[in-house]
Design a protein around this nucleic acid. Structure first.
Lengths: 229, 229
DNA sequence: CGTCAAGAAAATCTCGAGATTTTTGAAAAA
DNA sequence: TTTTTCAAAAATCTCGAGATTTTCTTGACG
């Protein structure tokens, strides 16, 4: 593992967990101190994030965490539904016994790992298990190009999860039930069922985030409202 | 334009034009001399190619141009047909008058620019016009996520074009006719027509390349055949 | 003749210093 | 009060040298 590789992994995890806020600048000087790496290493790691769609770059203005907006989230969701439903259809149709086993294992893990961490934030282990479940679900499809695209889109969408204010215990239970449904339908080889369950799941997650965004906008207006003209 | 930006553009163009062979190593030391840039600049530009899917990277082993294989080309083609037909459907349905005009202009340019350059190789201007035509065709669709994905897939597919042995005048005429059909059906707002034309076009290009690959394999076998046991 | 090992060559990886550009903040003018 | 100017500060951009790792060559051994 080279230095640049390590820093890239840490940067990626820190963005996916919201430790770097969406839209915030990624100053090389600041990152040098935080990650204890030279500018050269950082300037090699950061462009990789750009390629993955997790960061942006402008000449003479440095790097930024990818920015978020409701419009972009809706586009992202539409793209995910389009591609993932296609993949899951192929996957459930063509998946082998090994794929079935992997999916069961991934779901079992996801169902057991706690959603909340010690600090009240989302547990990093849960995020990893969640990413794994969705990846394995589509791995029955043989087209690696499309699978890679789906993974990339999910990663960008993950930025939005940590951007939302606070995940609730209620939403956690809903999500867990959705995962169970997806897993069951997939094992049963119920193609229309799994497609519908996955579509619902993706859209439900988006709606949760959009509601949260709307609420925040509302509060923001009140803060700058009649009480402080 | 920063140094790294410039070098990135040149590297990208050189890969897309086959001046760096698929699978070949991109040694920093060699590129330093060729592009007249320092190692730092190159180590910033190369990871961007990796993110775009035009190069690969392995720790301690450096960068390589993306490798090609018939299987990967087939996966790529399947992915392109799946995504581009969806996009062109949206595009032709929702495209504005401005979009129509842009498409006509892009096709006119593509039809006029010569296919072969002075050296007998494919003309770089034609490659640019071709990329532009296909990009504009899908630009009537508002979902930027999906459009970007389609563009990225086409770019990777471009690597295969230069990998093929020699484009013929015959294949050139076929391709030009296909572009004309696509453009006409799009302007007529004939959705099923344009979807069929685009599907044919993508598959035809792939088949041309696969035939060429098969012929080359055949010759390779003869070379190493009974005459030299 | 083929296999293995040690040394040499070459490439990658890492770092910090200097040049260039952008941003910031305060002072002056309208 | 608002706008403009300009200089200081900070960040980006670029470069080449040294450390580490891989690859290639050469030669000895089975």
């Amino acid at each position: 593992m080279t230095r640049a590789e390590e820093i890239y992994q840490r940067l990626r995890a820190d963005i996916l967990n919201g430790r770097h806020e969406p839209g915030s600048r990624l100053r090389v000087e600041a990152l040098k101190e935080r990650y204890g790496a030279s500018s050269g290493v950082l300037r090699e790691a950061l462009p990789r994030l750009v390629g993955q769609g997790l960061a942006t770059f402008a000449p003479q203005q440095g790097f930024r965490v990818v920015t978020v907006s409701p419009e972009r989230l809706e586009e992202l969701t539409e793209a995910r539904v389009f591609i993932e439903t296609h993949l899951v259809r192929e996957s459930v149709t063509a998946g082998t016994i090994e794929w079935e086993s992997d999916l069961l294992a991934a779901h079992h893990h996801l169902a057991r790992v706690p959603f909340f961490g010690d600090t009240g934030e989302i547990n990093e282990g849960w995020l990893n298990a969640h990413a794994r479940f969705h990846r394995v679900l589509l791995e029955g499809c043989s087209n690696r190009q499309l699978r890679d695209i789906a993974t990339q889109l999910r990663e960008v969408a993950e930025v939005y999860r940590c951007w939302a204010r606070t995940p609730t215990e209620h939403s956690n239970r809903d999500i867990a039930a959705e995962h169970k449904t997806i897993c069951d339908r997939a094992i049963e080889r119920d193609v229309p069922g799994v497609v519908e369950a996955l579509t619902r799941h993706i859209n439900a997650t988006t709606n949760l985030l959009l509601d949260d965004y709307g609420r925040r906008e509302e509060e923001g207006k009140q803060d700058r409202g009649p009480s402080a003209p």
